[in-house]
Every structure is written in structure tokens, then in C-alpha cells.
């Protein structure tokens, strides 16, 4: 058997209360080993309090060519931001 160890994407929660964040990837034969490797590779200096490992093949990514249709429609909907509305000074903080 010469199959290369599959790729895993690693997510780390840096501190309590924060989201897990993607930090990189690594190769491992299974989830248990991916977890051990993630600990050694990505948390040598107190970078995390929790780790997720996800097989890279399980991730579905949006395609760069869809960038326009996916994200441009929100650009002209400025009314979705609170700064769109004028609030009179007398009203104060809202």
C-alpha cells in the first residue's frame, strides 16, 4: 500500500469565547492522528484551547468564477447597514 496520508484542515480556538479559526492543514492517516499532529504542529506556543480537525475532502468551496454573482449583489444594498439612516442629533445614541 503506498497511498499518501490524506489531508486534514485544522481549526483552532485561540481563547475561550472566540470562534475556531482555520490555521492550516496537515497529513494524517486518521482523525486521531490528525489531532495529535495538529497539537504538535499548531499549538507549540499556547496558540489554542480547542482543536477541530476536518478531512479536506469534506470541504465544499465557492468557486472564484462565482465571485461576482455570489458577492456583488450585496454591494448595492447599503440600507442593510445602520449608517444608511440619518438619526437627528437630538435623539442621541441609537
Amino acid at each position: 500500500m503506498s497511498a499518501e496520508w490524506p489531508l486534514w484542515e485544522i481549526f483552532i480556538r485561540g481563547q475561550h469565547g472566540l470562534n475556531h479559526r482555520h490555521v492550516g492543514s496537515l497529513h494524517a492517516p486518521d482523525a486521531e492522528m490528525a489531532m495529535r499532529h495538529a497539537r504538535d504542529v499548531y499549538t507549540r506556543r499556547n496558540e489554542g484551547v480547542s482543536i477541530w480537525v476536518v478531512p479536506s475532502v469534506a470541504i465544499t468551496a465557492s468557486s472564484p468564477s462565482d465571485k461576482g454573482p455570489m458577492f456583488e449583489p450585496s454591494q448595492d444594498k447599503v440600507y442593510r447597514h445602520p449608517s444608511f439612516f440619518d438619526i437627528p442629533d437630538e435623539i442621541g445614541h441609537m
Binding site: 500500500m1 503506498s2 497511498a3 496520508w5 492517516p29 486518521d30
Partner: peptide, 8 residues
């Protein structure tokens, strides 16, 4: 490398 893949 092979053994761990076989185990997995």
C-alpha cells in the same frame, strides 16, 4: 506510513 494507513 503504510501501517497507520492500514490501521485507519
Amino acid at each position: 506510513r503504510e501501517g497507520l494507513m492500514a490501521h485507519a
